[in-house]
Design a protein around this nucleic acid. Structure first.
Length: 573
RNA sequence: GCCAGCGUAGCUCAGGGGUAGAGCAGCGGUUUCGUAAACCGCUGGUCGUCGGUUCGAAUCCGACCGCUGGCUCCA
């Protein structure tokens, strides 16, 4: 048994132990399910009263008693009949029993607690070495919002106290990288109750980072044969009826507004504008592929409970593009997009990401042949590029299969970023065609794609990835010049001007404050270079260089410093 | 949207039925200093909003708004 399997078994057993503890405190508890998860476990309960944070230590100490008693886990196999009797007061367990395919089901007992469970488990409760209950949350029975909401207790468990403490410490460190916290501390963006939830105000420093990314994005897209376009933020409702969005996507749309007797809505997607541009002329098969790219701001109504800083908002800018191509070009185009996405996110330092290939859902547009053909193309691209990916069966959008790339935030939550979606629906609904070599009209294949996801979510991940210490090329302030005493101020401005002329974003800190305070603030603002000047520097026409790592490089000529900063900017690291 | 928790000065937070507190920030001074916080003084809040209970509410109750952790959903 490898480490992961052993840990999973132990964590699952910890869930049973927690269930026993809860049962002893609430004899009338009804039990849902209690699996192992990454780093720990949870169990869902229906209880006579809401749990509070204060209940957790009580449950923990009860769990410790059970662990200290070192009770064996005993597996038994019983008939469904017997299981129904055993769990007669447990409606959720009965529901599970009824759905199990076999006539015989497994149960596990430890101490006074018996659970319907496939197993496997550890030999006895004493094998749980280190655990902690972390939080309580509501969770729908079977993850279905029409079902009752149960109370879920989450815990973490490890092989040793040291590993547990290490994990908790890492979580605490990760919390410091939270983009919502850093966004405020580094003065990057804000969200206002007065404006509305999920709507972002970008402050000068955050806007500057975004602008650098957008400039880079545009330049790379132009290199890759994309054409930059702009399309309106509102459009007639009829357009969205034709596209099917009004029918399939209505819950996410802001209600229509009436203008001159016509209904308009704010766009939730950019595709329709791009289609209109495509359709403004007759297109020959020789013109394809056409790639229209737009940093397009869209608005979607998201339920209040799902909003999260920059990562899940109601107004966001997609780094969108739509590729119109012939079916025989699809694979090459998807290949180009995957490579571009890989290049973009690796430029921003993301090495660790997940690729998912989603296939045909139950409700779908187009024919099975179209789906299979496109899904195979996507698969071949991933295989040719030797990219490891997971299949996400049935999770495609109704209009076509897709490849998603997920980026992780500081706390390990995976957010969908780049996405590449083949679309069989819109070309038909809008009759998006080209004239083939045969002189006849053919539907184009349309590919919707982003290579960052959205500026908001990407920035959220980026802030957390770097913990706010952005690489030099993205740092809003790249160098701060700090005089030791007021008599050095003239010289700091002189140095500052030289750096500015070199295109380095420089700030001269000429406030009447002590150098130590200025260094501290520069550190807290995660400014990459601190350039300190005092009597020695003025006398020698040099500067003293300190890095945000804390490293004191010491005396350098101004041209040495300029060259170093330029090199670091160009290396994008 | 659902479950739970939370909302006190610009920020971080204490207080908890008798009418508001700290540190930092800000402002005014003093200090001119060698690699992560100099010193003194001052200003600053209808305690998220609206209702209710009470002689009296920031404190208790209700509704709403917002935030946090999950669930569901997603770029």
């Amino acid at each position: 048994m490898n480490r992961e399997e052993r840990l999973e078994r132990m964590r699952h057993s910890a869930a049973h132990i927690m269930a026993e503890a809860v049962q002893s405190l609430f004899p009338e508890a009804k039990f849902g399910i209690g699996p192992a998860i990454e780093n720990g476990f949870y169990y869902d309960f229906e209880l006579p009263r809401p749990l509070t944070q204060e209940d957790l230590p009580i449950i923990e100490s009860k769990m410790k008693e059970i662990i200290d008693a070192d009770l064996p886990f005993i597996r038994e196999e019983v008939s469904k009949e017997k299981a129904r009797l055993l769990f007669a007061t447990q409606p959720y367990k009965l529901e599970l029993i009824n759905e199990l395919p076999d006539a015989i089901v497994a149960i596990y007992k430890q101490g006074s607690f018996t659970d319907l469970c496939r197993g496997p488990h550890i030999a006895s409760t004493g094998e749980v070495k280190a655990f902690k209950l972390t939080h309580i949350a509501g969770a729908y029975w079977r993850g279905d919002e029409r079902q009752p909401m149960l109370q879920r207790i989450y815990g973490v468990a490890f092989d040793s106290q040291a590993e547990l403490e290490d994990y908790l410490l890492r979580q605490a460190e990760a919390a410091k990288r939270d983009h919502r916290k850093l966004g405020k501390e580094l003065d990057l963006f804000s969200i206002h109750e007065e404006i509305g939830p999920g709507l972002i105000c970008w402050h000068p420093k955050g806007a500057l980072i975004r602008q650098i990314i957008e400039d880079f994005w545009k330049a790379e897209h132009i290199k890759q044969g994309y054409d930059i376009v702009y399309t309106p933020h509102i459009a007639k409702l009829d357009l969205w009826k034709t596209s099917g969005h009004w029918e399939f996507y209505r819950d996410y749309l802001y209600p229509p507004m009436e203008v001159e007797g016509q209904q308009y809505i704010i766009k939730p997607m950019n595709c329709l504008g791009h289609i209109m541009i495509y359709k403004s002329q007759l297109r020959s098969y020789r013109d394809l592929p056409l790639r229209y790219a737009e940093l397009g701001t869209v608005y979607r109504y998201e339920r209040t409970g799902v909003l999260h800083g920059l990562a899940r908002v109601r107004g966001f800018t997609q780094d969108d593009a739509h590729i119109f191509c012939r079916p025989d070009q699809t694979e090459a185009e998807v290949m180009g997009v995957v490579e571009l996405a890989k290049f973009m996110i690796s430029t921003f330092g993301f090495g660790d990401y997940e690729l998912l290939l989603s296939t045909r859902p139950e409700k779908y547009a187009g024919t099975i042949e179209m789906w299979e053909g496109a899904t195979e193309s996507l698969k071949r691209v991933l295989e040719k590029l030797k990219l490891p990916y997971k299949l996400d069966p049935g999770e495609g959008v109704f209009y076509g299969p897709k490849i998603d790339i997920k980026l992780r935030d500081a706390l390990g939550h995976a957010w969908q970023g780049p996405t590449i979606q083949v679309d069989f629906n819109l070309p038909q609904r809008f009759n998006v065609c080209y004239i083939g070599a045969d002189g006849l009209e053919h539907n184009v294949t349309m590919i919707h794609r982003t290579v960052l996801g959205s500026m908001e979510r990407f920035l959220a991940c980026l802030i957390e990835h770097y913990g706010g210490a952005f690489p030099v090329w993205l740092s809003p302030v790249q160098a701060v010049i700090i005089p030791i005493a007021d008599r050095h101020i003239d010289y700091t401005h002189q140095v500052g001007n030289e750096l500015e002329e070199e295109g380095i974003r420089t700030q001269v800190d000429d406030r009447s404050e002590r150098m130590n305070l200025k260094i501290r603030e520069a550190q807290l603002n995660k400014i990459p270079y601190m350039i300190i000047v005092g009597d020695n520097e003025v006398a020698s026409s040099n500067v003293s260089l300190r890095l945000r790592s804390g490293e004191d490089i010491g005396s350098q000529t101004i041209s040495q410093v300029k060259a170093k900063i330029r090199r670091d900017i160009e290396a994008k690291c």
